[in-house]
Protein backbone atom coordinates (compact mmCIF):
# COMPACT_ATOMS: atom_id res chain seq x y z
CA UNK A 1 0.00 0.00 0.00
CA UNK A 2 1.44 3.39 -0.91
CA UNK A 3 1.61 6.00 1.79
CA UNK A 4 2.07 9.74 1.76
CA UNK A 5 5.47 10.99 2.83
CA UNK A 6 5.54 13.19 5.93
CA UNK A 7 4.67 16.81 5.21
CA UNK A 8 3.55 19.99 6.93
CA UNK A 9 0.00 21.07 6.12
CA UNK A 10 -1.25 24.60 6.66
CA UNK A 11 -4.84 25.75 6.09
CA UNK A 12 -5.17 29.50 5.51
CA UNK A 13 -8.59 31.11 5.78
CA UNK A 14 -8.12 33.93 3.28
CA UNK A 15 -6.47 34.28 -0.10
CA UNK A 16 -4.11 36.95 1.31
CA UNK A 17 -3.03 34.59 4.07
CA UNK A 18 -2.47 31.83 1.49
CA UNK A 19 -0.35 34.14 -0.65
CA UNK A 20 1.77 35.08 2.38
CA UNK A 21 2.27 31.43 3.33
CA UNK A 22 3.20 30.51 -0.22
CA UNK A 23 5.78 33.28 -0.42
CA UNK A 24 7.14 32.25 2.98
CA UNK A 25 7.38 28.52 2.16
CA UNK A 26 9.16 29.09 -1.12
CA UNK A 27 9.07 27.32 -4.48
CA UNK A 28 9.04 23.77 -3.04
CA UNK A 29 5.69 24.27 -1.38
CA UNK A 30 2.63 22.81 -3.04
CA UNK A 31 -0.91 24.11 -3.21
CA UNK A 32 -3.75 21.66 -2.76
CA UNK A 33 -7.52 21.94 -3.09
CA UNK A 34 -9.24 18.61 -3.83
CA UNK A 35 -5.97 16.70 -3.67
CA UNK A 36 -6.93 14.28 -6.43
CA UNK A 37 -3.78 15.05 -8.43
CA UNK A 38 -1.27 16.00 -5.74
CA UNK A 39 -1.73 13.23 -3.21
CA UNK A 40 -1.43 10.25 -5.61
CA UNK A 41 1.71 11.86 -7.06
CA UNK A 42 3.08 12.32 -3.55
CA UNK A 43 2.36 8.68 -2.71
CA UNK A 44 4.49 7.65 -5.67
CA UNK A 45 7.17 10.16 -4.60
CA UNK A 46 6.90 12.02 -7.88
CA UNK A 47 6.79 15.17 -5.76
CA UNK A 48 7.70 15.55 -2.11
CA UNK A 49 6.79 19.05 -0.99
CA UNK A 50 7.88 19.67 2.59
CA UNK A 51 4.94 22.06 2.99
CA UNK A 52 1.44 21.82 1.54
CA UNK A 53 -0.92 24.79 1.62
CA UNK A 54 -4.56 23.74 1.63
CA UNK A 55 -6.90 26.10 -0.18
CA UNK A 56 -10.21 24.38 0.58
CA UNK A 57 -11.13 26.59 3.51
CA UNK A 58 -10.87 29.84 1.55
CA UNK A 59 -14.32 31.29 0.93
CA UNK A 60 -13.11 33.79 -1.68
CA UNK A 61 -12.13 30.84 -3.89
CA UNK A 62 -15.69 29.50 -4.09
CA UNK A 63 -18.62 30.32 -6.29
CA UNK A 64 -19.68 31.21 -9.80
CA UNK A 65 -20.84 34.73 -10.77
CA UNK A 66 -22.17 36.40 -13.87
CA UNK A 67 -24.16 35.19 -16.81
CA UNK A 68 -23.96 34.52 -20.53
CA UNK A 69 -24.41 38.20 -21.40
CA UNK A 70 -21.60 39.64 -19.28
CA UNK A 71 -19.44 36.58 -19.01
CA UNK A 72 -18.84 34.19 -16.15
CA UNK A 73 -16.43 34.17 -13.25
CA UNK A 74 -15.61 30.75 -11.81
CA UNK A 75 -13.44 30.72 -8.73
CA UNK A 76 -10.69 28.13 -8.48
CA UNK A 77 -12.27 25.96 -5.78
CA UNK A 78 -15.45 25.29 -7.73
CA UNK A 79 -15.52 21.51 -8.02
CA UNK A 80 -15.59 19.81 -11.41
CA UNK A 81 -18.99 18.38 -10.48
CA UNK A 82 -20.27 21.91 -9.87
CA UNK A 83 -18.82 23.15 -13.17
CA UNK A 84 -20.50 20.28 -15.02
CA UNK A 85 -23.90 20.83 -13.48
CA UNK A 86 -24.13 24.62 -13.15
CA UNK A 87 -26.92 25.69 -15.53
CA UNK A 88 -25.07 28.88 -16.48
CA UNK A 89 -22.08 26.83 -17.63
CA UNK A 90 -24.05 24.03 -19.24
CA UNK A 91 -26.29 26.56 -20.98
CA UNK A 92 -23.86 29.08 -22.42
CA UNK A 93 -20.50 27.25 -22.34
CA UNK A 94 -21.46 23.57 -22.83
CA UNK A 95 -17.92 22.61 -23.87
CA UNK A 96 -16.69 23.45 -20.37
CA UNK A 97 -19.51 21.56 -18.67
CA UNK A 98 -18.80 18.58 -20.88
CA UNK A 99 -15.06 18.68 -20.30
CA UNK A 100 -15.43 18.98 -16.52
CA UNK A 101 -18.10 16.29 -16.50
CA UNK A 102 -15.84 13.78 -18.24
CA UNK A 103 -12.87 14.08 -15.91
CA UNK A 104 -12.11 10.78 -14.14
CA UNK A 105 -15.01 9.53 -11.99
CA UNK A 106 -17.97 10.91 -10.06
CA UNK A 107 -16.14 10.73 -6.72
CA UNK A 108 -13.08 12.53 -8.01
CA UNK A 109 -15.19 15.21 -9.67
CA UNK A 110 -16.83 15.88 -6.32
CA UNK A 111 -13.40 16.60 -4.82
CA UNK A 112 -11.38 17.90 -7.76
CA UNK A 113 -11.52 21.60 -8.53
CA UNK A 114 -11.42 23.72 -11.67
CA UNK A 115 -8.22 25.37 -10.48
CA UNK A 116 -6.66 21.99 -9.87
CA UNK A 117 -7.63 20.67 -13.29
CA UNK A 118 -6.32 23.79 -15.02
CA UNK A 119 -2.99 23.36 -13.20
CA UNK A 120 -2.94 19.57 -13.54
CA UNK A 121 0.56 18.10 -13.52
CA UNK A 122 1.70 16.83 -16.92
CA UNK A 123 1.70 13.04 -17.23
CA UNK A 124 3.77 10.34 -18.81
CA UNK A 125 3.89 6.52 -18.73
CA UNK A 126 7.43 6.77 -17.42
CA UNK A 127 6.72 9.40 -14.75
CA UNK A 128 3.37 8.45 -13.21
CA UNK A 129 4.63 5.24 -11.70
CA UNK A 130 5.63 4.10 -8.24
CA UNK A 131 9.00 5.00 -6.80
CA UNK A 132 10.29 1.43 -7.16
CA UNK A 133 9.31 1.23 -10.84
CA UNK A 134 10.98 4.53 -11.62
CA UNK A 135 14.08 3.52 -9.68
CA UNK A 136 14.32 0.30 -11.72
CA UNK A 137 14.21 2.39 -14.87
CA UNK A 138 16.82 4.85 -13.64
CA UNK A 139 14.26 7.65 -13.19
CA UNK A 140 13.50 10.28 -15.81
CA UNK A 141 14.23 13.87 -16.66
CA UNK A 142 11.09 15.18 -14.98
CA UNK A 143 11.99 13.64 -11.65
CA UNK A 144 15.29 12.38 -10.23
CA UNK A 145 16.87 11.38 -13.55
CA UNK A 146 18.54 12.60 -16.73
CA UNK A 147 16.81 10.78 -19.58
CA UNK A 148 13.49 11.31 -21.25
CA UNK A 149 12.45 7.71 -21.90
CA UNK A 150 9.98 8.57 -24.61
CA UNK A 151 12.52 10.56 -26.64
CA UNK A 152 15.92 9.48 -25.40
CA UNK A 153 17.88 11.86 -27.58
CA UNK A 154 15.81 14.85 -26.58
CA UNK A 155 17.07 17.56 -24.22
CA UNK A 156 13.54 18.36 -23.02
CA UNK A 157 10.74 16.63 -21.14
CA UNK A 158 7.73 15.49 -23.15
CA UNK A 159 5.19 14.82 -20.40
CA UNK A 160 1.66 15.35 -21.70
CA UNK A 161 -0.87 18.02 -20.84
CA UNK A 162 -3.70 15.87 -19.49
CA UNK A 163 -6.30 18.41 -18.46
CA UNK A 164 -9.74 18.39 -20.09
CA UNK A 165 -10.71 21.91 -19.02
CA UNK A 166 -7.47 23.58 -20.17
CA UNK A 167 -7.99 23.19 -23.95
CA UNK A 168 -11.58 24.38 -23.55
CA UNK A 169 -10.48 27.49 -21.66
CA UNK A 170 -7.94 28.28 -24.36
CA UNK A 171 -10.52 27.74 -27.11
CA UNK A 172 -13.03 29.98 -25.35
CA UNK A 173 -10.48 32.76 -25.03
CA UNK A 174 -10.90 32.69 -21.25
CA UNK A 175 -8.60 34.52 -18.86
CA UNK A 176 -7.21 33.54 -15.48
CA UNK A 177 -6.39 35.66 -12.44
CA UNK A 178 -3.18 34.90 -10.58
CA UNK A 179 -2.69 36.29 -7.08
CA UNK A 180 0.51 36.65 -5.05
CA UNK A 181 2.09 38.86 -2.40
CA UNK A 182 3.42 40.95 -5.27
CA UNK A 183 -0.08 41.74 -6.49
CA UNK A 184 -2.30 40.15 -9.07
CA UNK A 185 -2.42 39.78 -12.82
CA UNK A 186 -4.98 38.59 -15.34
CA UNK A 187 -3.63 36.69 -18.34
CA UNK A 188 -5.21 34.81 -21.25
CA UNK A 189 -5.61 31.10 -20.45
CA UNK A 190 -3.33 30.39 -23.40
CA UNK A 191 -0.53 32.29 -21.67
CA UNK A 192 -0.80 30.10 -18.58
CA UNK A 193 0.66 27.09 -20.41
CA UNK A 194 4.15 26.41 -21.72
CA UNK A 195 5.19 23.65 -24.06
CA UNK A 196 7.53 21.88 -21.66
CA UNK A 197 6.80 18.77 -19.63
CA UNK A 198 8.53 20.11 -16.51
CA UNK A 199 7.89 23.87 -16.61
CA UNK A 200 4.40 23.51 -18.02
CA UNK A 201 2.83 26.51 -16.26
CA UNK A 202 3.72 30.18 -16.55
CA UNK A 203 2.35 30.54 -13.03
CA UNK A 204 5.19 31.73 -10.80
CA UNK A 205 5.90 29.57 -7.72
CA UNK A 206 4.45 32.26 -5.44
CA UNK A 207 1.20 32.70 -7.42
CA UNK A 208 -2.21 31.18 -6.76
CA UNK A 209 -4.71 30.69 -9.58
CA UNK A 210 -7.78 32.31 -8.06
CA UNK A 211 -10.33 32.66 -10.81
CA UNK A 212 -11.21 31.81 -14.40
CA UNK A 213 -13.05 34.45 -16.44
CA UNK A 214 -15.17 33.41 -19.39
CA UNK A 215 -16.04 36.00 -22.07
CA UNK A 216 -19.65 36.90 -22.97
CA UNK A 217 -21.32 34.01 -24.78
CA UNK A 218 -23.21 35.92 -27.46
CA UNK A 219 -22.97 34.09 -30.76
CA UNK A 220 -20.78 31.46 -29.12
CA UNK A 221 -20.96 27.82 -30.08
CA UNK A 222 -18.59 25.39 -28.48
CA UNK A 223 -17.96 21.71 -27.91
CA UNK A 224 -15.39 19.35 -26.40
CA UNK A 225 -14.58 15.83 -27.58
CA UNK A 226 -12.49 13.55 -25.39
CA UNK A 227 -10.71 10.47 -26.70
CA UNK A 228 -9.86 7.73 -24.23
CA UNK A 229 -10.06 3.98 -24.09
CA UNK A 230 -12.94 3.70 -21.61
CA UNK A 231 -15.95 5.78 -20.72
CA UNK A 232 -14.66 6.69 -17.29
CA UNK A 233 -11.48 6.87 -15.18
CA UNK A 234 -9.11 7.52 -18.03
CA UNK A 235 -7.22 10.71 -18.80
CA UNK A 236 -7.61 12.14 -22.30
CA UNK A 237 -5.27 10.75 -24.95
CA UNK A 238 -6.64 13.42 -27.25
CA UNK A 239 -8.91 16.37 -26.50
CA UNK A 240 -10.57 18.54 -29.12
CA UNK A 241 -12.03 21.86 -27.97
CA UNK A 242 -13.78 24.01 -30.56
CA UNK A 243 -15.24 27.47 -30.03
CA UNK A 244 -16.92 29.41 -32.82
CA UNK A 245 -18.39 32.90 -32.95
CA UNK A 246 -21.21 32.60 -35.43
CA UNK A 247 -23.43 35.14 -37.17
CA UNK A 248 -26.26 33.22 -38.81
CA UNK A 249 -24.42 30.56 -40.80
CA UNK A 250 -21.11 32.38 -41.08
CA UNK A 251 -18.21 31.83 -38.69
CA UNK A 252 -16.78 35.20 -37.61
CA UNK A 253 -13.88 33.53 -35.85
CA UNK A 254 -13.06 30.08 -34.58
CA UNK A 255 -10.52 28.43 -32.33
CA UNK A 256 -9.61 24.75 -32.38
CA UNK A 257 -7.44 23.59 -29.50
CA UNK A 258 -6.00 20.08 -29.14
CA UNK A 259 -5.35 18.64 -25.71
CA UNK A 260 -3.17 15.69 -24.72
CA UNK A 261 -1.01 15.78 -27.86
CA UNK A 262 1.78 17.90 -26.39
CA UNK A 263 2.93 19.35 -23.07
CA UNK A 264 0.51 22.26 -23.37
CA UNK A 265 -2.90 22.75 -25.01
CA UNK A 266 -2.14 23.16 -28.70
CA UNK A 267 -3.94 25.87 -30.66
CA UNK A 268 -4.39 24.64 -34.24
CA UNK A 269 -3.72 28.10 -35.65
CA UNK A 270 -3.70 27.30 -39.39
CA UNK A 271 -6.89 25.30 -39.16
CA UNK A 272 -8.60 27.92 -37.00
CA UNK A 273 -7.76 30.70 -39.50
CA UNK A 274 -9.44 28.76 -42.30
CA UNK A 275 -12.76 29.16 -40.48
CA UNK A 276 -12.79 32.97 -40.35
CA UNK A 277 -15.53 34.63 -42.38
CA UNK A 278 -16.75 31.36 -43.87
CA UNK A 279 -20.06 29.53 -43.77
CA UNK A 280 -19.66 26.23 -41.94
CA UNK A 281 -20.11 23.72 -44.76
CA UNK A 282 -19.16 20.05 -44.89
CA UNK A 283 -16.41 20.84 -47.41
CA UNK A 284 -14.87 23.54 -45.23
CA UNK A 285 -14.99 21.19 -42.27
CA UNK A 286 -13.04 18.53 -44.15
CA UNK A 287 -10.43 21.11 -45.14
CA UNK A 288 -10.12 22.41 -41.57
CA UNK A 289 -9.82 18.89 -40.08
CA UNK A 290 -7.06 18.09 -42.58
CA UNK A 291 -5.13 21.20 -41.49
CA UNK A 292 -5.73 20.62 -37.78
CA UNK A 293 -4.23 17.18 -37.47
CA UNK A 294 -0.93 18.05 -39.08
CA UNK A 295 0.25 20.10 -36.12
CA UNK A 296 -0.41 17.32 -33.64
CA UNK A 297 2.72 15.42 -32.65
CA UNK A 298 1.79 13.02 -29.88
CA UNK A 299 4.51 10.73 -28.56
CA UNK A 300 4.43 7.21 -27.16
CA UNK A 301 3.82 8.12 -23.54
CA UNK A 302 0.10 7.60 -23.02
CA UNK A 303 -2.40 4.80 -23.56
CA UNK A 304 -2.85 3.40 -27.06
CA UNK A 305 -0.79 3.91 -30.18
CA UNK A 306 0.51 7.45 -30.78
CA UNK A 307 0.27 7.34 -34.57
CA UNK A 308 -3.35 6.34 -34.16
CA UNK A 309 -3.96 9.21 -31.72
CA UNK A 310 -2.61 11.64 -34.29
CA UNK A 311 -4.97 10.26 -36.95
CA UNK A 312 -7.84 10.58 -34.51
CA UNK A 313 -7.16 14.32 -34.24
CA UNK A 314 -8.45 14.67 -37.79
CA UNK A 315 -11.47 12.44 -37.14
CA UNK A 316 -12.40 14.20 -33.91
CA UNK A 317 -11.93 17.76 -35.24
CA UNK A 318 -14.15 16.83 -38.15
CA UNK A 319 -16.81 15.31 -35.89
CA UNK A 320 -16.71 18.22 -33.45
CA UNK A 321 -17.17 20.75 -36.25
CA UNK A 322 -19.94 18.69 -37.82
CA UNK A 323 -21.68 18.62 -34.45
CA UNK A 324 -21.56 22.42 -34.29
CA UNK A 325 -22.75 22.67 -37.90
CA UNK A 326 -25.75 20.48 -37.12
CA UNK A 327 -24.57 17.74 -39.48
CA UNK A 328 -24.55 14.03 -38.57
CA UNK A 329 -21.14 13.44 -37.00
CA UNK A 330 -20.61 10.17 -38.87
CA UNK A 331 -21.50 9.59 -42.53
Amino acid sequence: MMRLPPFRYVAPRTLAEAADLLAEHGPRAALVAGGTDLYPNMKRRQVEPPGVIGLRGIQELRGVDGDARQGLSLRANVTLAEVASDPRVAGAYPALARAAGQVSTVHLRNMGTLGGNLCLDTRCNYYNQSYEWRAALGFCKKRDGQTCWVATASPRCWAVSSSDTAPVMVALGARVRLVSVRGERVIPAEALYQDDGIRYLARQPDEILAEALLPPAEGLQCTYWKLRRRGSFDFPILGVAVALERDDGVVRAGRIVLGAVSSAPLLAAEASKLLAGQPLTAELIDEVAEAAWRGARPLDNTDLNYAWRKRMAKVYVRRALRELAGLPVQD
Binding site: N125, Q129, R230, G231
Partner: peptide, 12 residues
Amino acid sequence: PSMLEYKSLSAL
Protein backbone atom coordinates in the same frame (compact mmCIF):
# COMPACT_ATOMS: atom_id res chain seq x y z
CA PRO B 1 1.71 -1.84 -14.01
CA SER B 2 -1.38 -0.29 -12.44
CA MET B 3 -5.13 -0.70 -12.74
CA LEU B 4 -5.29 2.71 -14.38
CA GLU B 5 -2.96 1.78 -17.22
CA TYR B 6 -3.64 -1.95 -17.59
CA LYS B 7 -7.12 -1.58 -18.99
CA SER B 8 -10.11 -3.73 -18.25
CA LEU B 9 -13.73 -2.96 -18.95
CA SER B 10 -15.56 -0.47 -16.82
CA ALA B 11 -19.27 -0.82 -16.15
CA LEU B 12 -19.83 1.44 -19.14
